[in-house]
Design a protein around this nucleic acid. Structure first.
Lengths: 238, 238
DNA sequence: GAACTCTTGTAAACACCGTTCACTGAAACC
DNA sequence: GGTTTCAGTGAACGGTGTTTACAAGAGTTC
């Protein structure tokens, strides 16, 4: 187990502390408070020492994004594992978990999901959504959508997403045939992501055009509608 | 016209230049480049002089947000005035204009619509949307939604939005009866805002789970679906 | 026109920031 | 034991928001 040398262990430990301090600063005092000097102060070292671990402040922020994604994925998986119902229930659970996470971690959400930087890859995205989307589409419950519903101009992009989904699911050893993962279904997954993300972001940023005093039922209501539209919704009360 | 004294005119002029410089910096080099010293440098004055106009850097940023909202509203109104069709066409036009504006001004969009700061009031929001939403709801085209579709828990909040809409429309001298502006319709307007905002934000921030090479038809497709769901969509090609 | 106030700007300073560089001292290696 | 590797230091540079004391012009009053 302890193959690593003493120096390597110390380095790993310090790196862990750096990430931890950066995360705490982001959560407690916002993005602008995540400064090299503040992190160093927390660890009891000086700012230039951090350059032994990260090339720049920006690189450290990127690492922070990755950490956040990983943590979010873990949180979603955790909530998902508590849900033992059929696929529809699982989708609902993971959507609710996403909202809950975003509201509990607004700074992290803003950094990862609403910053005009490089688009994040599928892996960084937290594979939870893709995993579940794949399973959802694969399940025969969503069989009402055919390819010809989807405008031809979108085919090229949706095929790309199809590949992303196949790859995401195959990581866990599951195989999906292209006939099951058709474009009509994929299109509806994209539409669902639009609504889920839209609702959560509006709520986190307080950008509904009126004061919302009771946001949770509003979200659940949107979710019901979404699940109905996507093609399976046996009962609205989960 | 020139009631103002010479000093007042000079002050107004300087303030205008400050806003202009701040805006240019935001657009060209991002939020973090909007610095008091950079603005002052642009005007050929020193940074502390700016404190004669704004209490703090943060206050200046707030002003910047207001300016952006006003400009966006003007842009949307301009695009809207080019559309001479019925209400459905106007809604489509303003939604497209919103997307176009957001993509052309990503930094401004991020600042105004995706920052974890105080929620913006209805006026700051750019009254265009509310105006149009009011007109849309008032038109009998959207008559398919009844109040009992809407969960009771949401009534309180939707009534608040109802009031916001009535106020927004009445500013322009138009009166709407409560019977026409019913909760079912209002609910669908909120759902539409969720989808519109979600799609635009995902596109601006590059947060679709796959590379989108052809985003415009995807947006139009979403818009078609949205207009259909909201209850009026005579022909899909506008 | 002189004296006065109000306003707008300046310069200097403080504490903070990211980043670079020459350096130390200890761990790791041969 | 000598050498190399490397985490960490301290000083420095130019940048930031903000405060303070001060100057100089504009507007006002007598």
């Amino acid at each position: 187990m302890t193959e690593a040398t003493r120096r390597e262990r110390l380095r790993a430990e310090t790196e862990r502390e750096i990430r931890q301090a950066a995360r705490a600063l982001l959560v407690e005092r916002g993005r602008d408070a995540v400064t090299l000097r503040a992190i160093a102060r927390e660890l009891g070292i000086t700012a230039p020492a951090l350059y032994r671990y990260y090339d720049s402040h920006d690189a450290l922020l990127r690492q922070l994004c990755d950490d956040i994604c990983a943590d979010m994925a873990a949180a979603l998986y955790a909530d998902l594992s508590l849900e033992t119902g059929h696929v529809g229930c699982k989708v609902r659970a993971v959507c609710r978990a996403f909202r809950r996470w975003a509201l509990a971690h607004p700074q992290e959400f803003a950094l990862v999901f609403a910053s005009p930087r490089d688009p994040l890859g599928a892996d960084q995205f937290g594979s939870v959504f893709l995993q579940l989307a794949g399973q959802l589409i694969a399940s025969n419950l969503v069989a009402t959508h055919a390819d010809d519903e989807v405008p031809e101009v979108l085919h090229e992009d949706l095929v790309r997403f199809q590949q992303v989904l196949v790859d995401a699911v195959s990581v866990h050893g599951v195989q999906i045939g292209e006939d099951i993962l058709n474009l009509g279904k994929i299109y509806h997954v994209v539409q669902s992501w639009v609504r889920l993300y839209g609702h959560v972001a509006l709520e986190v940023f307080g950008r509904f055009p009126f004061a919302v005093s009771n946001p949770e039922p509003m979200f659940d209501s949107m979710l019901d509608q979404m699940l109905t539209d996507i093609g399976f919704q046996e009962d609205a009360n989960s």
